[in-house]
Design a protein around this nucleic acid. Structure first.
Length: 294
DNA sequence: GTGCAGGTCAGCT
DNA sequence: AGCTGACCTGCA
């Protein structure tokens, strides 16, 4: 077993779990690191992750234990995935990236939250659009109530720190272009306004096959291949896609030791064909490695 | 001040 | 199909 449950806490027993790399590897924006505590607030849930007696603990402050077991993908054996990667790949850079990103897991995030977040992210800087997302939560979500932690330092932090839920679909549907402009979305505001109108239909796309899902996502204005694949990987756990952003483009040049620019669509095609359903995992390792070692 | 940022679209060949 | 320029705007 990868974990055990004690009251409202999940004690992580496997090695392949590191909150730093999980949260920093580019898949998620709904977290905050305060001192050595990682607060995560997907949808309307709240948990704090920290180290205790050499083990990581996920303390659930609001929400169900089951929700966070699924969220952190704790039932998947990442040792096995890494073994498969090592068997299949002999490339030095990728092996280095895998060892650097030890403890990365692909979260099971809400597809709506992922879609909205990644539309915000296009051609934007992280600071700016995470501010926009925080503002969206504050204004259209609600404050997440939380129970007392067993750690006194966490209770101290919670005195001054509020966390807000991601707005419900019913609320998102009412937001217009003007509102998204007010959040600082810039020209993406119209994309967001169009997207929220289709959320009822979008939400039903679970269990839809990869190609069909991709087609649907690309039909949204403002969703290109990169955002579509991020939503597929992070919001639908489709691990057979390889999102290519600026970091992966750079990593690909290292990988092939070439200096000519190659179109992202082409890179994505080549890499997903090569790595199959290991693509998503390898993408995360490469992204994290390249961004942390600029 | 000014150049950029986890891409995408429209308008070309 | 494949390439190119324009794009909101807060932050460094």
């Amino acid at each position: 077993m990868n974990f055990e449950i004690q009251d409202n806490k999940i004690i992580v027993l496997c090695n392949q779990f590191n909150p730093e790399s999980i949260l920093q590897c580019g898949q998620v924006f709904s977290y905050k690191k305060i001192n050595d505590y990682y607060f995560v607030y997907p949808k309307n849930n709240l948990a704090v992750v920290y180290k205790k007696e050499n083990k990581f603990v996920i303390e659930v402050l609001n929400g169900k234990i089951e929700f966070f077991i699924n969220y952190f993908d704790l039932k998947t054996n990442y040792e096995e995935i890494i073994e498969k990667i090592k068997l299949k790949i002999n490339d030095n850079l990728i092996l280095k990236a895998v060892s650097f990103g030890k403890g990365i897991r692909i979260l099971n995030q809400d597809c709506v939250e992922t879609l909205i977040s990644f539309i915000f992210s296009q051609n934007n800087n992280i600071k700016r659009f995470t501010n926009s997302l925080d503002k969206l939560r504050q204004e259209k979500g609600h404050e997440i109530a939380c129970c007392c932690s067993e750690v006194e330092e966490i209770n101290e932090i919670l005195k001054n720190q509020k966390f807000f839920s991601f707005p419900e679909i019913e609320v998102l549907k009412t937001l217009d272009e003007k509102y998204f402009c007010h959040l600082g979305a810039g020209y993406r505001a119209q994309y967001l306004a169009l997207a929220v109108k289709e959320l009822d239909e979008f939400f039903k796309l679970k269990n839809v096959e990869t190609n069909c899902l991709l087609e649907k996502l690309l039909s949204f204005k403002g969703v290109g291949l990169k955002v579509a694949q991020c939503v597929m990987l992070f919001g639908f756990h489709k691990t057979d896609v390889f999102p290519v952003d600026t970091w992966i483009s750079k990593a690909y040049l290292d990988l092939t030791q070439s200096k000519n620019k190659i179109p992202p669509t082409k890179i994505s095609k080549i890499l997903s064909k090569k790595f199959g359903n290991l693509s998503g995992y390898i993408q995360q390792y490469l992204f994290y490695f390249k961004r942390e070692n600029k």
